[in-house]
Simulated assay, not measured.
Amino acid sequence: MPTNITLVQGDITEQDVDAVVNAANSSLLGGGGVDGAIHRKGGSDIIAECRKLRAERYGRGLPTGQAVATTAGRLPARWVIHTVGPVWSQEEDRSDLLVSCHRESLRVAREIGARTIAFPAISTGVYRWPLDDAARIALRTLREEGEGFAELRLVLFDQRSYDAFQAAG
């Protein structure tokens, strides 16, 4: 694994990095899993910026595969980069959208000047993306697109996720 990509098992809301990536839903207004945890722990400043983004730029919600940054509120990070992962489908290959989540998050990170970024396992929760495939896609994309960052940290919530990313590395 490239030296700027690290794997840790833990809580993404506790990462002391420039930016954390939020596996958001398109409403940008919070939800379950990583999204809910970031909004709960980060506080009202995040939701206020998300509401403003909805009103000014994303009236229909943030499109799948896109990314946008807000403050991180009370989180140790400076920014939250919200990205909407695809729902996994057996009938349709949506892997390009999962690649886009990682690529667009890196693009936004560059725009805001973030050097250290923490990513969750995007789409592997309620969106049911198979863990092994998500790990392969995330690591490949970060290797190909992650040049110039000090650290790209994949923060895996449980041992099963950590093991899948370790195996894909």
Rank of each mutant, 00 (worst) to 15 (best):
G42L: 00
E104P: 08
P120R: 04
W129R: 00
L142F: 10
G65H: 12
R57A: 15
G42N: 03
R110C: 11
R51T: 03
R60G: 14
E111W: 14
P120W: 07
V87Q: 13
V87C: 06
I122R: 03
G59I: 08
V34H: 11
R103M: 06
D45Y: 14
G61H: 02
R74E: 11
F119I: 15
R57W: 13
A138I: 02
T70V: 14
A37H: 09
P120T: 07
L142G: 10
Y58W: 10
G125N: 01
A134S: 06
L139K: 12
D96I: 15
Q90Y: 10
A114G: 11
Y127S: 03
E144I: 11
P130G: 04
R60P: 13
P120A: 06
A109L: 01
E104V: 08
D35F: 02
L139W: 12
T70E: 12
H102L: 14
S89P: 04
T64M: 01
G42H: 01
D96L: 13
S105Q: 07
E91T: 12
T116R: 09
R103D: 06
A138F: 01
F119Q: 14
R140V: 01
R94K: 10
G113S: 05
L131M: 07
R115T: 11
L139C: 13
T124S: 03
A67I: 05
V108Q: 08
R110S: 10
C50Q: 02
T64G: 01
G113I: 02
R115S: 13
R54T: 14
G125R: 04
P130E: 05
L139H: 11
V87H: 13
A114W: 12
F119D: 14
P76E: 10
T116P: 05
I47F: 04
L98K: 09
L139E: 12
G61K: 00
T124F: 03
G32E: 03
V80M: 15
S95W: 02
R143G: 07
L142A: 09
G33E: 05
Q90E: 13
A121F: 00
C101E: 07
V68P: 02
G65T: 13
I122E: 02
